[in-house]
Design a protein around this nucleic acid. Structure first.
Lengths: 197, 197
DNA sequence: ACCATAAGTAAGTATTTACTTGCAAAGATA
DNA sequence: TATCTTTGCAAGTAAATACTTACTTATGGT
């Protein structure tokens, strides 16, 4: 019987959850099913996480650490605003397409469970993305590149519709979803909002 | 003991589901909880619906009949394209704000259950909205009002981000959500995409 | 080689879930 | 008034769920 450390098992468990979500839906993320996917007994899961909820929160924490921190770097870099905005959007799209299960987890779990901790996490992930996108736009306007009559808040709100749209289209079209050029197409559209007349 | 017809009970049950979703989250939509909310016994629910899933599908059917048909009328009316687009967006926003539970139901249930029937319904609701919005844009372009270089498909995809954004913001901010001017603000933004240079 | 600890399991637990059954009685129809 | 259908309920059911318990054994440091 081969044993693995908690560090490794935690990663395997989180990964199993995402696989199950994408393949069978959130409903089938049961401790029994997770155990089967990882190849350990159900009881073992509780050696590595205190509760099922902790697993979900750990995955959300990963999103905060990976995606949000990447986006923060892009947003705060010294490249021109248009370059940053394009990179920012593409990074988001790539991340959501790569970790397909995350899509539905963020989308669904917080509203399903209506759990305070989860909603707090979702709120952080959502608002960070929104604010960091807003930062790029503010900079572009301050540099005189973009239209100063555009409300940064309203633009950011509309911008957040793009990853949300992606989420739904991936859910509805599963593996057939064509994401190539997705970020370029959307970038071209929102640029028209920002450009001066 | 007062009795009500199946017609009336079905409406009460659907309404109870939406109330519970908004107040306590989808997880708490159990037959036991629905019965309590309506004020009947759990067994009685199955006099009026064959299964819990049928209740959810009936609610989705209502959305198809009410919201989608309203939007269809707006999209196909003979008003000018800009007027239609504004009315179309406002109608959607008003509906989602009025029936708050629907927001989370559409948002979450199909991806949670991963049920074919539900995904089919969601797909219809999502794509109808998208296509009917696209129709307005096509007309506007054909009439020479809007920029003919804009891809209707790409625009419609971005447009669908608006109700999705609304959904998430309502989930995160609950009753504090400020929806006044929401459709006007977003209308002004997307209009910039459509306008000729 | 020893041993404490971490990682494993099988077989439980209590609770919740959607749904059924058998019977009672309200309300409509005759 | 008599009867038939519909609506109601209390008390079930089987299955699933997250998590626990009691016990075993692999592994790493001394």
């Amino acid at each position: 019987m081969v044993r693995k450390s908690t560090d490794i098992r935690q990663e395997e468990i989180k990964s199993a959850v995402l696989s199950i979500i994408f393949r069978e839906g959130l409903k089938n993320v049961s401790t029994k099913n997770i155990a089967k996917e990882v190849g350990i007994s159900e009881g073992s899961i509780f050696r590595h996480f205190n509760s099922k909820k902790d697993i979900i929160l750990a995955i959300m924490e990963d999103v905060s650490n990976d995606l949000i921190e990447s986006l923060r770097k892009i947003s705060l870099s010294d490249k021109p605003a248009p370059t940053r905005l394009f990179d920012y959007l593409c990074k988001t799209v790539t991340y959501l397409v790569t970790y397909k299960g995350i899509t539905m987890l963020l989308f669904s779990e917080a509203s399903y469970q209506n759990d305070t901790q989860m909603i707090t996490k979702l709120n952080y992930i959502f608002n960070s993305q929104k604010q960091l996108a807003g930062k790029i736009v503010s900079d572009g306007i301050a540099n005189g590149i973009w239209d100063e009559t555009v409300s940064v808040e309203n633009f950011s709100s509309l911008y957040m519709g793009i990853p949300l749209s992606l989420n739904i289209e991936m859910l509805l079209n599963r593996e057939n979803f064509e994401h190539k050029n997705f970020c370029r197409k959307n970038y071209m559209l929102i640029l028209k909002i920002l450009e001066k007349k």
